[in-house]
Design a protein around this nucleic acid. Sequence first.
DNA 1: ATTGCAATTGAACAGCGTTTATTTTACTTA
DNA 2: TAAGTAAAATAAACGCTGTTCAATTGCAAT
Lengths: 201, 201
Amino acid sequence: MGRRNDHTRKELKEMAIKAGVELIEERGFQNFSIRKVAAKIGYSAGTLYNVFENSDDLVFHINSVTLDDLQNYIETKLDQELKGVEAIKRMGDRYIEFAHEYNSRWNALFEYRRPLDSELPQWYLLKLNSLFAIVEKLLLPFVHGDIESAKRVAKVLWGGVHGICSLGLTQRMGQDGTELLKTLANSLIENYISGLTQAKE
Amino acid sequence: MGRRNDHTRKELKEMAIKAGVELIEERGFQNFSIRKVAAKIGYSAGTLYNVFENSDDLVFHINSVTLDDLQNYIETKLDQELKGVEAIKRMGDRYIEFAHEYNSRWNALFEYRRPLDSELPQWYLLKLNSLFAIVEKLLLPFVHGDIESAKRVAKVLWGGVHGICSLGLTQRMGQDGTELLKTLANSLIENYISGLTQAKE
DNA sequence: ATTGCAATTGAACAGCGTTTATTTTACTTA
DNA sequence: TAAGTAAAATAAACGCTGTTCAATTGCAAT
């Protein structure tokens, strides 16, 4: 088949990303391939190389959608009533819930199997940044408005909660369910901030 | 070639694991394959299937060596003089140093790309357990000797430090170097334990 | 209509994990 | 020592992978 005006470039790109999201969600990242994505949208694999640099590029775009969904998932149910530590604890809960509910896509976010020297795309880093920004904002009251401190504390908390979630969901800490993982994350958030604020006074 | 008594089963297994460790360390997990391991030790790929269930099984054995090395790395320089929080902080530092120094092997430990329903081997879980045990022991003084509490706190701290290390080394928190990551991990350990002990009193 | 361009394809390549029939070797028995 | 048996290693095959590229097809403008 030659040129056919079924879809614009943009449409093609969106179709591929959507199909990729579904493929990962339904059958796991293990089962993902650029050929299957192509088949799913009725194109050949070669065509996708007009739209994406390579397979990794497609995965980054799929992961980008997942990050959007994650951000949305966290923000929508982030009760505006909740203040301070409670709000952050709720964020941790939501992160773990998301990781559990959309486990395959969440796993895909942290696939490392890429060339040793490769770097994450700039636009992707910016998206990650905006996730950190949410908690940074919530942390400002605890660090007397110092944004640099907030950034550091946010890294500790995001990193910490992610680590608990990561080791937990991949069975590397035993058979703990998500409820226990939330308890652990809450403990981390509560006591870390408690320790932090007291040290400063 | 047919039967040849060059090596025993045990030797073959060890040679393959050693070659696998080197292959990952030198060229990254991305570059690992059971065929390359076979070539590296002068056997065909099929032979390795007499000794390992499959490729995953070989990877688990390689990772097992990495866990041994990690445990050794942490314990040997764990200054016996250091007590309490300081000892745990040192452990965090050593974990991050190891992850940095043996980055490819450390990454291989957390490769998730396996079937959705698959479980980690029992013997592998036991090995992970003994890593947790190190910090559990150090934590006992802070939880009045309650081993269950120590286990929970150990999960929070291991998970937390791992998360900071993981996001940090994979460039998901910016361009932070290992020194900053250690600072973040130390902050986590110090303030979390501080918050924890105060809440109890 | 003819031309030219752009999009799409299928085939090709080198690699992968895994299985299996076949071959080669070593060991055991006569 | 020779024959027979069992074990171990291999090569080839299968179906998959990402990626590239020449050939083909369809569209649009001349």
